[in-house]
């Protein structure tokens, strides 16, 4: 099976490991991710703060490219790209004049029949199918993750069909269930890490992140699992800073969902680029497997 794939700018740069992992695990699952040709930036959350027309027009160009190539589904692992593209599609569906206005400027026109999927939407039907079980080669039962969704998977600036529960999403827990990993229940699933505020309003962002961390620690978690590259970068790169500032001793690795999926399917840590974390994630994975061998 082939589906269209929009990596976005972040997955080509600071979160390139997420791109590598996504391609690798989908291949392992029998799906080929076809990167759409000559895609451009979706404008992320910034475009909506600078110009309303651009906020729709920038992702529209990519929708047009995917539709022109004949794809019916496009997966977007980055939560910001996913949110902006889904919103742009809905706004054009609700306002045909806006759509025509944008189509006048782009070569590959938007029609409006592309299914835009988050990484969880694309993964769930595959990992919950019966034939997935034999693919799970390693068990990490000692892992006690909290699933951190952040803002952009379930809350949108415009009314769109939301594929999960808005305040208590379950998609990541379901994927982990399929791997035999039980995620912990907690309160900060959909809380905001501050996103770009980590750069432009650092103190505010550190304060938000410390609250997320405190609840995770209080619940007894030993790692975070995320789908958003911005959440991953923030919670990982700034963890020492917000923990030191708030007297938190624990340090928790922040895994992409693709890392745990890949590791469980037996893909080597080097291949998953597991060594690119600020807070080491390789050791914890090794330990949870060691414990298992001891039990046997």
């Amino acid at each position: 099976m082939e589906i269209a794939y929009y990596p976005g700018c972040s997955l080509q740069q600071s979160s390139a490991l997420y791109d590598v992992q996504s391609r690798r695990i989908f291949e392992e699952l029998g799906v080929r991710l076809m990167e759409i040709e000559d895609w451009s930036c979706c404008g992320a959350t910034s475009a909506g703060k600078v110009d309303d027309f651009l906020a729709v027009a920038l992702p529209a160009r990519n929708i047009g490219i995917a539709e022109d190539a004949g794809f019916t589904e496009m997966v977007i692992p980055c939560s910001a790209c996913y949110s902006r593209t889904l919103v742009a599609q809905q706004r054009m569906a609700d306002d045909t004049r806006l759509k025509e206005d944008i189509n006048e400027e782009i070569g590959k026109k938007v029609r409006g029949n592309l299914k835009i999927s988050s990484i969880l939407e694309s993964l769930l039907p595959i990992v919950t199918a019966k034939d997935f079980k034999p693919k799970v080669k390693r068990q990490f039962r000692e892992l006690k993750p909290v699933c951190y969704y952040g803002c952009m998977l379930t809350r949108f600036p415009y009314t769109v069909p939301v594929p999960d529960r808005v305040e208590n999403p379950r998609g990541m827990e379901q994927v982990l269930d399929a791997l035999g990993i039980k995620a912990l229940d907690w309160n900060y699933k959909t809380y905001c890490c501050g996103a770009s505020a980590a750069v432009n309003d650092n103190q505010t962002s550190l304060s938000l992140m410390s609250r997320i961390m405190k609840d995770a620690v209080a619940r007894g978690a030993n790692c975070f699992v995320v789908t958003c590259p911005m959440c991953q970068m923030n919670m990982d790169a700034h963890q020492n800073a917000f923990c030191e500032k708030n007297d938190i001793e624990a340090r928790l690795p922040v895994y992409f969902i693709t890392e745990l999926l890949g590791a469980a399917m037996g893909i080597a840590p080097e291949e998953l680029q597991l060594d690119r974390h600020f807070i080491d994630g390789a050791q914890l994975l090794k330990e949870s497997e060691k414990d298992e061998r001891k039990e046997k």
């Binding site: 740069q13 600071s14 895609w39 451009s40 690119r276």
Partner: peptide, 21 residues
């Protein structure tokens, strides 16, 4: 950590992006 990228990113279709702008 290898999370800095030195290759330059651009889209050939940036003319269209500029037209939208």
């Amino acid at each position: 950590l290898g999370r800095m990228h030195f290759g330059f990113q651009m889209a050939k279709g940036r003319k269209e992006v500029k037209a939208l702008y």
